[in-house]
Amino acid sequence: MSSSPVVEVSGIHKAYGSTVAVDNVSFAVQEGEIFGLIGPNGAGKTTTMECVEGLRQPDAGRIGVFGLDPIKDARALQNRIGVQFQQAELQKRIKVREAVELWASLYDAPVDATRLLEQLGLSEKRDAWFMTLSGGQKQRLFIALALINNPELVFLDELTTGLDPQARRTIWDLVRDIKDRGKTVFLTTHLMEEAERLCDRVAIIEHGRIVDHDSPAGLIARHCPQRRTVVATAYPNATEAFGRLTPVDDVSSDGEELTVSGRGDDLVTAVIHAISEHQMQVTAFRTERPTLEDVFLTLTGHSIKD
């Protein structure tokens, strides 16, 4: 992990006319990790990623991929990276097998096409035209194309946007498989749940700027240390009993439901302890952990969906 990073971006800047898409962005992707660039629509994720892929030229700043320049050394890099685009189509009437075989013919050392289709669950669809595939199947085909050259680094831009939860889960498993095979994954998403489940580290980007980066757990711990436990009880002095606990900051009640908030990992233990000590009759109990969604809200002042 301490070796030099696979991707190193420092101070890149990109504007389209008067629209500043990427503004002084720096980050690094380490070998073997899943790194996520997360942010709302128009934040500059795709622009940043395509600069790293060598498809766009930043106006300023430096990018290194395996220590190489994405534009000058494009040829040398092509065999080491795999790319999946946010918006891509293939010829309507190309067959799945033909697409994979075409891609395979373009690289020096492709993996076995039949096995790859099998791994991605596309064997049955090998003779289907592209236009007849479902959204999830199309995305799996694009993943296959991104993996055909056995790349060390895989770029995935908004891989699951527009898919139903079931298809999304399937794709998540596939991304974990990619990582398990020792590859580095650089992805973008505006789904916080996806980032939290998949990524080892994330960078939050908004209006072209990186707001913060860390592991999802690290970001949550730093920006939203607040934990909440909701207890439903008819016990008369419950509010006072919970209020006296050290990790508790605040207790609010809504009828019989008490929301106990505080910080630190001890909060839940302390609440349970108090319940048993006072022999409270509890009818419902749940804990609420803050998510990356909350981190985003704290950092930017608005929800990512707005």
């Binding site: 498809l55 065999n79 790319v83 891509a88 010829q91 891609w103 373009l106 690289y107």
Partner: peptide, 16 residues
């Protein structure tokens, strides 16, 4: 059609 559908771009990101 190929450009609008991103097919050209997809092909461009290969050694083609």
């Amino acid at each position: 059609i190929y450009r609008e559908g991103g097919i050209l771009k997809r092909l461009k990101a290969t050694p083609l």
